[in-house]
Write a protein that binds this DNA or RNA. Structure first.
Lengths: 134, 134
DNA sequence: TAAATTTGCTTGCGTTTTGCAAGTGCAAAT
DNA sequence: ATTTGCACTTGCAAAACGCAAGCAAATTTA
């Protein structure tokens, strides 16, 4: 299942081996916007990921230390997923994706607002966001 | 074949719809390091992409204006692939991937050298690289 | 306290994508 | 004229995906 076989020593390639698919970074995105999510929260996202795909991606990301499971404070039936430091470190990357998309797609209004903040002072935005996520 | 069906209006999602797979960014990488490549050049890369996958990714990237075909100055049998402005604009993203990988993988020496330059002055590195690619 | 619901998955199964090998058509070199 | 090089295409088995249904444990409701 979550077997990481590196195709090469190239850092781009090694990174793609972990999150180079259509879903993994959407999970990371959800965690960056929400700080923590349950399994059900991910399923509620606009893109409608299938349950088995979600399970396999969560496992893959956990095995590669991008996310961690935690027990939910209110219920044993629920599981909380959070970003690890390694996951939080994907923030600059996510921001660059947003900036690229901002140039070539039409962004939803809420994201435009965030992007304006990023454009004003990228480093400051990243710093404050990291604190928020810890 | 190269049908872009957006899963949502989210910029991350829309971006992944284009290059969110294990191979597309490796093609972009090759073009950023080499400025221009032939079909055969891509095949020589360490990761050993299959010919049919390469063809489908090149088509997808061309349809989404990330790369362009040009005729080779020396031969009609060869085809030159280059990054478009949209493709060149992926440079900051590629750099962030490198920086992330630098923290969590062991990079090959040549890349470490480049990364040192990036860390000294990221914007300057990007600026000079863009000029190089145009 | 028994039944129904919620939650986080797993399983089956048909469809799509991938990966490998071989083949094709055109250009260029021999 | 024939062989080689280059850019793909094709066939096919294997893997991954996507949808729906199922399931066990925890929690809520009656």
């Amino acid at each position: 299942m979550g077997n990481l076989k590196k195709r090469s020593e190239c850092p781009i390639s090694s990174s793609l081996d972990i999150w180079g698919d259509k879903w993994s970074l959407l999970i990371v995105r959800d965690l960056m916007f929400s700080k923590q999510c349950t399994y059900g929260d991910f399923l509620k996202s606009e893109e409608k990921i299938a349950t088995n795909i979600l399970a396999s991606r969560l496992q893959m990301l956990e095995e590669n230390d991008v996310i961690t499971k935690q027990e939910h404070p209110e219920s044993k039936a629920k599981v909380l997923y959070k970003l690890t430091q390694k996951g939080i470190d994907l923030l600059p990357l996510m921001i660059e994706i947003n900036l690229w998309a901002d140039k070539y797609f039409t962004l939803p209004p809420e994201r435009r607002v965030m992007l304006e903040e990023v454009k004003k002072d990228k480093d400051a935005f990243i710093a404050s966001k990291i604190i928020e996520l810890l």
